[in-house]
Protein backbone atom coordinates (compact mmCIF):
# COMPACT_ATOMS: atom_id res chain seq x y z
CA UNK A 1 0.00 0.00 0.00
CA UNK A 2 1.07 3.58 -0.55
CA UNK A 3 2.92 5.27 2.26
CA UNK A 4 1.02 7.68 4.39
CA UNK A 5 2.23 11.22 4.03
CA UNK A 6 2.81 13.38 7.03
CA UNK A 7 0.91 16.65 7.10
CA UNK A 8 4.06 18.19 8.61
CA UNK A 9 6.32 17.22 5.77
CA UNK A 10 7.31 20.72 4.56
CA UNK A 11 7.59 22.24 8.04
CA UNK A 12 9.30 19.46 9.98
CA UNK A 13 12.85 20.59 10.75
CA UNK A 14 14.93 18.09 12.71
CA UNK A 15 17.58 19.66 14.89
CA UNK A 16 17.80 22.02 17.84
CA UNK A 17 15.78 25.20 18.08
CA UNK A 18 14.94 28.05 20.43
CA UNK A 19 16.77 29.01 23.57
CA UNK A 20 19.36 26.31 24.07
CA UNK A 21 21.24 28.06 26.86
CA UNK A 22 20.23 25.28 29.23
CA UNK A 23 20.12 22.56 26.58
CA UNK A 24 16.93 21.45 24.88
CA UNK A 25 14.18 21.34 27.49
CA UNK A 26 12.02 19.06 25.40
CA UNK A 27 12.17 16.76 22.44
CA UNK A 28 9.33 17.13 19.96
CA UNK A 29 8.40 14.76 17.24
CA UNK A 30 5.73 13.28 15.08
CA UNK A 31 5.08 9.60 15.52
CA UNK A 32 3.56 7.64 12.72
CA UNK A 33 1.83 4.71 14.34
CA UNK A 34 0.36 2.11 12.03
CA UNK A 35 -3.08 2.30 13.61
CA UNK A 36 -5.10 4.79 15.57
CA UNK A 37 -8.46 3.30 16.39
CA UNK A 38 -11.46 4.32 18.40
CA UNK A 39 -13.29 1.64 20.33
CA UNK A 40 -16.70 2.86 21.45
CA UNK A 41 -18.68 0.67 23.79
CA UNK A 42 -22.37 0.61 24.61
CA UNK A 43 -23.26 1.54 28.11
CA UNK A 44 -22.89 -1.45 30.41
CA UNK A 45 -20.72 -3.41 27.96
CA UNK A 46 -17.38 -2.01 29.06
CA UNK A 47 -16.11 -5.20 30.66
CA UNK A 48 -16.79 -7.64 27.82
CA UNK A 49 -15.62 -5.08 25.27
CA UNK A 50 -12.35 -4.51 27.12
CA UNK A 51 -11.93 -8.24 27.32
CA UNK A 52 -12.09 -8.33 23.54
CA UNK A 53 -9.52 -5.57 23.44
CA UNK A 54 -7.28 -7.57 25.74
CA UNK A 55 -7.65 -10.56 23.41
CA UNK A 56 -6.79 -8.61 20.32
CA UNK A 57 -4.11 -6.31 21.64
CA UNK A 58 -2.85 -7.77 24.86
CA UNK A 59 -3.64 -4.47 26.55
CA UNK A 60 -5.38 -4.39 29.90
CA UNK A 61 -6.76 -1.10 31.10
CA UNK A 62 -7.11 -0.11 34.72
CA UNK A 63 -10.60 0.92 35.83
CA UNK A 64 -11.64 4.51 35.92
CA UNK A 65 -12.37 7.43 33.68
CA UNK A 66 -9.43 8.38 31.53
CA UNK A 67 -7.30 5.50 32.63
CA UNK A 68 -4.92 3.90 30.22
CA UNK A 69 -1.73 2.06 29.64
CA UNK A 70 1.19 2.72 27.35
CA UNK A 71 3.85 0.46 25.93
CA UNK A 72 6.24 1.20 23.11
CA UNK A 73 4.32 -0.85 20.56
CA UNK A 74 0.79 -0.25 21.73
CA UNK A 75 -1.09 2.13 23.91
CA UNK A 76 -4.70 2.58 24.93
CA UNK A 77 -6.66 4.98 27.06
CA UNK A 78 -10.19 6.05 27.78
CA UNK A 79 -10.98 9.56 26.59
CA UNK A 80 -14.75 9.77 26.95
CA UNK A 81 -17.51 7.72 28.53
CA UNK A 82 -17.33 4.31 26.87
CA UNK A 83 -14.72 5.44 24.38
CA UNK A 84 -11.12 4.35 24.09
CA UNK A 85 -8.30 5.26 21.78
CA UNK A 86 -5.98 2.44 20.75
CA UNK A 87 -2.70 3.22 19.12
CA UNK A 88 -0.55 0.50 17.64
CA UNK A 89 2.65 0.39 15.68
CA UNK A 90 1.04 -2.31 13.57
CA UNK A 91 -1.32 -1.48 10.74
CA UNK A 92 -4.76 -3.06 10.44
CA UNK A 93 -5.74 -2.91 14.10
CA UNK A 94 -9.18 -1.55 13.24
CA UNK A 95 -9.99 -4.54 11.06
CA UNK A 96 -8.77 -7.01 13.65
CA UNK A 97 -10.73 -5.34 16.39
CA UNK A 98 -13.86 -5.02 14.28
CA UNK A 99 -13.72 -8.69 13.42
CA UNK A 100 -13.52 -9.60 17.09
CA UNK A 101 -16.08 -7.21 18.51
CA UNK A 102 -19.76 -8.03 18.44
CA UNK A 103 -22.07 -5.19 17.46
CA UNK A 104 -23.83 -5.85 20.73
CA UNK A 105 -20.73 -4.59 22.52
CA UNK A 106 -19.76 -1.55 20.55
CA UNK A 107 -18.26 -0.09 17.42
CA UNK A 108 -14.82 0.38 15.97
CA UNK A 109 -13.75 3.42 13.99
CA UNK A 110 -10.46 3.68 12.14
CA UNK A 111 -8.84 7.06 12.68
CA UNK A 112 -5.36 6.12 11.49
CA UNK A 113 -5.41 8.80 8.82
CA UNK A 114 -7.56 11.25 10.71
CA UNK A 115 -5.33 11.94 13.69
CA UNK A 116 -1.74 13.06 13.76
CA UNK A 117 0.36 11.79 16.65
CA UNK A 118 2.84 14.09 18.37
CA UNK A 119 5.23 13.24 21.14
CA UNK A 120 6.76 15.64 23.59
CA UNK A 121 9.33 14.42 26.07
CA UNK A 122 11.71 15.99 28.50
CA UNK A 123 12.02 17.80 31.77
CA UNK A 124 10.06 20.81 30.49
CA UNK A 125 7.26 18.85 28.83
CA UNK A 126 4.72 19.76 31.49
CA UNK A 127 5.73 23.42 31.35
CA UNK A 128 5.37 23.61 27.57
CA UNK A 129 2.05 21.79 27.48
CA UNK A 130 0.67 23.94 30.28
CA UNK A 131 1.06 26.91 27.95
CA UNK A 132 -1.44 25.34 25.59
CA UNK A 133 -3.94 23.35 27.59
CA UNK A 134 -5.99 24.20 30.66
CA UNK A 135 -5.47 20.87 32.37
CA UNK A 136 -3.20 19.88 35.21
CA UNK A 137 -0.17 18.03 33.86
CA UNK A 138 1.37 17.32 37.27
CA UNK A 139 2.13 13.62 37.67
CA UNK A 140 -0.18 13.34 40.66
CA UNK A 141 -3.10 14.72 38.68
CA UNK A 142 -2.22 13.06 35.38
CA UNK A 143 -0.60 9.71 36.03
CA UNK A 144 1.41 7.73 33.53
CA UNK A 145 -0.80 5.85 31.12
CA UNK A 146 -3.82 8.06 31.67
CA UNK A 147 -5.57 9.90 28.87
CA UNK A 148 -7.29 13.27 28.65
CA UNK A 149 -9.50 14.96 26.09
CA UNK A 150 -8.99 18.67 25.93
CA UNK A 151 -8.50 21.47 23.47
CA UNK A 152 -6.26 24.36 22.57
CA UNK A 153 -8.77 26.92 21.28
CA UNK A 154 -10.13 25.38 18.07
CA UNK A 155 -7.80 22.41 18.14
CA UNK A 156 -9.13 19.33 19.85
CA UNK A 157 -6.54 17.02 21.34
CA UNK A 158 -6.38 13.69 23.08
CA UNK A 159 -3.37 13.38 25.29
CA UNK A 160 -1.83 10.33 26.91
CA UNK A 161 0.96 10.45 29.42
CA UNK A 162 3.23 7.72 28.14
CA UNK A 163 6.01 8.28 30.64
CA UNK A 164 6.86 10.41 33.65
CA UNK A 165 8.17 13.11 31.32
CA UNK A 166 6.55 12.06 28.10
CA UNK A 167 3.19 12.80 26.48
CA UNK A 168 1.58 11.65 23.25
CA UNK A 169 -0.90 13.98 21.63
CA UNK A 170 -3.47 13.10 19.00
CA UNK A 171 -4.73 15.99 16.94
CA UNK A 172 -7.05 16.22 13.95
CA UNK A 173 -4.91 15.89 10.85
CA UNK A 174 -6.12 19.08 9.19
CA UNK A 175 -4.92 21.09 12.19
CA UNK A 176 -1.61 19.26 12.50
CA UNK A 177 0.54 21.83 10.76
CA UNK A 178 -0.88 24.75 12.72
CA UNK A 179 -0.56 22.79 15.93
CA UNK A 180 3.03 21.90 15.18
CA UNK A 181 3.84 25.59 14.75
CA UNK A 182 2.12 26.35 18.02
CA UNK A 183 3.89 23.56 19.86
CA UNK A 184 7.29 24.54 18.54
CA UNK A 185 6.73 28.18 19.37
CA UNK A 186 5.70 27.27 22.91
CA UNK A 187 8.87 25.23 23.28
CA UNK A 188 11.23 27.96 22.12
CA UNK A 189 11.55 29.35 25.62
CA UNK A 190 12.96 26.13 26.97
CA UNK A 191 14.72 25.12 23.78
CA UNK A 192 13.66 22.02 21.87
CA UNK A 193 14.99 19.31 19.69
CA UNK A 194 13.05 17.87 16.80
CA UNK A 195 13.85 14.27 16.06
Amino acid sequence: MADRLSPLEPVYRPGNHGNLAGGAGVVLGERQPGSIVQLAVWSGQERPALAVMLDVTGMRLPDGAGSGSAREDIAAFGFAPGRFLLVSEAEGLADRLRAALSEELGTVTDLSHGRTAFRIAGAKAEWVLAKLFAIDFALAAFPTGAGRSTSHHDIFAQIQRSGPEQFDLYVFRSFARSFWHTLCRAAEETGYEVR
Binding site: R177, S178, F179, R185
Partner: peptide
Amino acid sequence: ERQAEIKPERLTPMHDWHVANGATMYSAGL
Protein backbone atom coordinates in the same frame (compact mmCIF):
# COMPACT_ATOMS: atom_id res chain seq x y z
CA GLU B 1 -0.06 33.10 21.73
CA ARG B 2 -2.97 34.30 19.64
CA GLN B 3 -1.17 37.60 19.24
CA ALA B 4 0.97 35.73 16.70
CA GLU B 5 -1.97 34.11 14.92
CA ILE B 6 -5.57 34.49 15.90
CA LYS B 7 -6.78 31.20 14.48
CA PRO B 8 -5.20 27.97 13.32
CA GLU B 9 -5.25 27.03 9.67
CA ARG B 10 -7.08 23.91 8.58
CA LEU B 11 -5.51 22.33 5.56
CA THR B 12 -6.62 19.47 3.36
CA PRO B 13 -4.11 16.77 2.44
CA MET B 14 -3.84 18.31 -1.04
CA HIS B 15 -3.17 21.83 0.18
CA ASP B 16 0.45 22.00 -0.89
CA TRP B 17 -0.44 20.85 -4.40
CA HIS B 18 -3.05 23.59 -4.74
CA VAL B 19 -0.63 26.28 -3.68
CA ALA B 20 2.16 24.92 -5.86
CA ASN B 21 -0.16 24.84 -8.86
CA GLY B 22 -1.28 28.42 -8.82
CA ALA B 23 -4.45 28.22 -6.81
CA THR B 24 -5.78 31.39 -5.26
CA MET B 25 -6.76 30.17 -1.82
CA TYR B 26 -10.03 31.13 -0.25
CA SER B 27 -10.45 31.26 3.50
CA ALA B 28 -13.58 29.31 4.38
CA GLY B 29 -13.98 29.33 8.14
CA LEU B 30 -10.68 27.90 9.30
